[in-house]
């Protein structure tokens, strides 16, 4: 196959284009067209729905908190801490997420379960779990790093705006109150509860161990 050469001529401006005036008028025409279309849609009230018809001509604004587009499952929103069956946090305060976090926005204070708790000695738990959502860059590394599927970003909620910086600092209770897009607060971690004498489920069958 022989190489073909296509000669492209450098586009030259015509006198009309060079004078700029005509082009300005043309440009104004384009924007005016949009202006009248948009105004018409807004005044008559039949603007296309950005949820069902996002690529329609005319106004494309999605009024976010009132109108929402469905998100992909892997879309990363505000964090949540998943629950165990008894409602305590899945998190074992391993600090993997705070280690992985490039923005260093996660602070965890690990603690031992109190005397008498069946998990004492087996696991630890986060006495404090704080995420500074202002610092967070929503990279999802914390979710990747978590060995227990305890932290997730599948809430489908955007970071909201607050008046105070302190409002962006989410504590453990706040993070545990968030619900996933599927409506549950559970995680996919089926590891049995430590200290449980029945030890239901040999989970390592499908684990890599």
């Amino acid at each position: 196959m022989t190489a073909t050469t296509k000669v492209l001529r450098k586009p030259r401006r015509t006198l009309a284009e060079q004078s700029y005036l005509l082009e300005v008028v043309k440009g104004l025409g384009v924007t005016l067209k949009h202006f009248f279309k948009g105004t018409g849609q807004l005044v008559s009230g039949n603007k296309p729905s950005p949820v069902t018809d996002p690529y329609a001509d005319g106004c494309a604004t999605l009024e976010y908190p009132d109108e929402k587009r469905p998100y992909a499952q892997r879309w990363r929103g505000v964090h949540r801490l998943t629950h165990r069956d008894d409602g305590s946090p899945r998190c074992v305060a391993c600090l993997c997420c705070s280690t992985a976090c490039p923005a260093q926005c996660i602070y965890i204070k690990p603690a031992e379960y109190p005397e008498g708790d069946k998990r004492r000695g087996y696991e630890r738990y986060p006495e404090e779990f704080v995420i500074d959502e202002l610092r967070c860059i929503f990279c999802g590394f914390c979710v990747e790093a978590c060995p227990c599927d305890a932290i997730r970003m599948d809430t489908g909620v955007h970071m909201t705006a607050f008046d105070l910086r302190s409002d962006f600092v989410y504590d453990k209770d706040q993070l545990m109150s968030h619900v996933g897009q599927d409506g549950t607060q559970k995680s996919a971690n089926t590891r049995h509860e430590p200290g449980d004498p029945t030890h239901p489920g040999i989970t390592r069958l499908h684990g890599g161990h």
Partner: peptide, 13 residues
Amino acid sequence: KQSAMMQDRIGPN
């Protein structure tokens, strides 16, 4: 509002 209309937006509301 005018710029919003021109750019297929709603503008402040």
